[in-house]
Amino acid sequence: MTVKQLTELEFFSSVTLPDPERSIDGVYIGDLLSWVMGRASSGDAWITIMSNVNILAVASLADTACIIVAENVKLDDVVIKTAEEKNINIIYSAVGAYETALALSKAL
């Protein structure tokens, strides 16, 4: 499924989708950025509760399909603006990482 299609499901909402047709091929959950960068695969939807701007570099380097910010954590405007510039998709999830992953598991 595409990141755009994901935002149409319950719990999910679009923050910025500069690359809406990007396909989601898998899921990775983690908040320690070195772990995520080393272990997330290209095309994964990355579920995290981290909200600082460094998540953008990690998503870019690991080539994830999108960042899903879980637990209703909100991002600063400057992070969102930078994501648009760097072509990084970001989606909010209104539920925790586990429930978010379950929803993805059903959808993928």
Partner: peptide, 14 residues
């Protein structure tokens, strides 16, 4: 901020 996990140098080696 999500750093300081002690994975930096090991990741560089890996």
């Amino acid at each position: 901020l999500g750093f300081g996990a002690g994975m930096g140098l090991p990741n560089m080696k890996r």
